[in-house]
Simulated scan of single mutants.
Amino acid sequence: MNVLEFLHTRQSNPHLQGNAPDEDVINSILKAGMRVPDHAGLTPWRFTVVKDEGLSKLSKAFKSAITSDNGDEAKIDKASKMPFRAPLIIVVSTKFHQHVKVPKQEQLIAAGCAAHAVQMAATSLGFGAMWRTGEMSYHPLVKERLGIELHEEIVGFVYIGDKSKELPLKNSRNLDDYVHYF
């Protein structure tokens, strides 16, 4: 399959299991994230690799975040299980820089491109991958526990693992509904 065919047929898969990939594979995935468009070469993103015991630490952070918000037991329980949906999570966050020509918004988009590249790299290697956000992406306690400064953004949690089931290919969207020429 060539790159264009891959991009035309790729889709997220939340059904993940198995062990985290080894360090060489993780580094290969992260290298893809480092090759995204980056105005002025600021590299306004960071990766936090979460696996093994890190999943338990992230679970505790999620649980603490919901508890601090006075969430009910069901919501606390659900949040505490979220990190175990995959054997590897790559948290993509921003690292904003002051720059006269590169506004914060462009830097956020570049970090989003890095998350996308990480997901595409994992998928191209045969793994299932799912880019997730949600309220834990914005919670200050989660940022603090992950070592992310409060003024930075968590762009997403990219869950990666072996696919526990294959999904049928979704229909492509009709271009006519989303494109106009000027």
Rank of each mutant, 00 (worst) to 15 (best):
K31A: 12
H139P: 15
L108E: 13
T43D: 04
D69K: 08
L42E: 06
K51I: 05
S93C: 12
L150V: 12
S137D: 14
A65N: 14
Q107V: 04
K101D: 14
D176E: 14
S124G: 14
P44V: 00
A32Y: 01
N70T: 02
I29W: 02
L7F: 08
P140M: 01
E166S: 11
I160F: 03
G71L: 07
L150I: 12
G41F: 03
N19A: 11
K143Y: 10
G126P: 13
H39D: 09
D72M: 01
T67Y: 09
A122W: 02
K31M: 11
I90Y: 04
M82K: 13
S93N: 13
A114D: 02
L88P: 15
L146G: 10
H97C: 07
H180F: 14
N2G: 04
C113Y: 03
S164M: 11
L175M: 12
D24N: 11
H139A: 04
A111T: 06
W45V: 02
I29L: 06
A74C: 07
A115M: 05
L125M: 13
L175I: 12
S56H: 12
V91P: 15
K60L: 13
A79H: 09
D38C: 04
Y181P: 15
F84V: 05
G128W: 05
H116C: 12
K101A: 06
T94V: 08
V179M: 08
F47E: 01
F62Y: 13
V118I: 14
S124N: 10
S59F: 07
M1S: 09
A20R: 02
S64H: 08
F47C: 05
A20N: 03
K101P: 15
H180P: 14
G161N: 07
G33M: 02
